[in-house]
Structure formats: C-alpha cells, structure tokens
C-alpha cells in the first residue's frame, strides 16, 4: 500500500488498489487493537518522478480516510531503487502530518541516506527532529556515504552511520523505544545485534 500515490507503480485497476488499502489498514488497526499497541508506524510511500507536489496533496486524502491517533509517521530515504520517496526530513514530515498526526518515527539510516543524497550534514538534520514528537527510533546501518538503505548490521565493516550522533540522541531520549530492523536471517542477526547495540550503548552513550 502506498498512501501518497496509491496507483503509482501499480498496474491494477484503482478500485482493486483501494480495496487492498482498505483491507491492509483494517488488518493493521486490528493488529494494533489486539496487541494494545499505541504506535502504528506508517510510511508516506513512493511517488513517480516529478510528482512530488501531487504526492503531498494525496497523502492528506489518505489521512481523511484512515486517520488514527496511533499513526506514527516515519522518515524515508530520498530515493530507493531509483524511485523517489516522500517524507525525507523533519520539515516534510511535519507538513505531511498536517497537524493531525502527532507521533513520529525517526529512522536513523533513512536520515543518513537522505543527507548523503542531498549533501547535507547528518547531525544538523538530526537536530531538526527535536521539534517533532518522536515516539520511536528505527536503527540499522548503512554503507559509508551511501544513499541506499540496506539494513546493514550495526557492526558491518563498511558501516558508516554516525554512531556518536545517533547514540548521543539515544542517550538524551533514553525512554523513546529503539527498534532494530532486519529482514533476512532475522533470528541469527538479532541474537548478535542486540549484544552489539549494548556494546555501542556503553561505548557511545552509556553512563
């Protein structure tokens, strides 16, 4: 499902797409209700090149239909696999939230991809998230200087995430949950990454 441009990159008829989104959101809210979750992380999605403005206009229509106070809007990298994504920095997330969504998820590697793509300073863009009500952090790693989100392990030899900045923020906001995100071989990866996180916490952000 793709809130900011439902029919982009999708060959199905629009009614079928809308039915799928309806089902997906129904299942999502059902899962949150069942688990008593106060956070439902949401991506604004991807849009066709040149259609940024249209995507910014479409996202509020998604909220008109599916707004829920548990929705938590996550920052995305500027591009992935050649297509542009919406909601790349704190300012754009605030615009997309439109005063309705008031919970945000800060994904550190997504932000690093964005700042690498734009030639910005990661620490400066990270600081801008202080103006948002961040209720969840997402953490993995990216290759040094990369614009591509790969969900690398925290101790990957080519990893380039600015851990001093990341764990500095985590220390300042230690009650905000931090979720590790890995997709492949998750059991083996998590068993080790939880220990790596603990080591990094002590190294960069411990007492």
């Amino acid at each position: 499902m793709n809130p900011c441009a439902p029919a982009a990159y999708d060959s199905r008829p629009l009614p079928d797409i809308e039915a799928h989104v309806e089902e997906a959101m129904t299942l999502t809210f059902e899962a949150a209700d069942t688990l008593g979750a106060g956070i439902i992380v949401l991506h604004a999605g991807r849009y066709l090149p040149g259609e940024h403005a249209a995507a910014m206009e479409e996202f509020p229509r998604f909220l008109d239909r599916y707004f829920d106070p548990r929705l938590t809007l996550e920052n995305l990298p500027t591009v992935y696999a050649g297509y542009p994504l919406l909601g790349n920095d704190a300012q754009e997330l605030e615009l997309l939230a439109g005063g309705r969504i008031d919970q945000f998820c800060l994904d550190f590697p997504h932000l690093a991809c964005t700042t690498n793509y734009r030639g910005q300073v990661f620490v400066e863009e990270l600081e801008r998230f202080e103006s948002l009500n961040v209720t969840l952090h997402h953490l993995s790693n990216i290759r040094r200087g990369s614009i591509t989100d790969e969900h690398l392990e925290l101790d990957h030899p080519d990893g380039g995430l600015d851990f001093a900045a990341v764990f500095g923020r985590l220390r300042q906001h230690r009650t905000i949950p931090t979720t590790l995100e890995y997709k492949e071989n998750a059991r083996e990866v998590y068993a080790r990454q939880v220990r790596v996180f603990s080591r990094l916490w002590e190294e960069y952000g411990g007492r």
Binding site: L170, R174, T175, I176, P177, T178, T179, L180, E181, Y182, K183, A186, R187, Y190, Q193, V194, F197, W201, G206, R207
Partner: peptide, 17 residues
C-alpha cells in the same frame, strides 16, 4: 537504561521464539 526492540514478521516463528 534504554528501551530496545526487534522486528518480527508474520509467520517467522523462529525469530519470535
């Protein structure tokens, strides 16, 4: 000291365990 978590996907019983 911190609040750490991991992601699990539906049907991934091994990771959930």
């Amino acid at each position: 000291d911190y609040n750490l978590g991991c992601t699990v996907r539906p049907g991934d019983a091994a990771t959930l365990a």
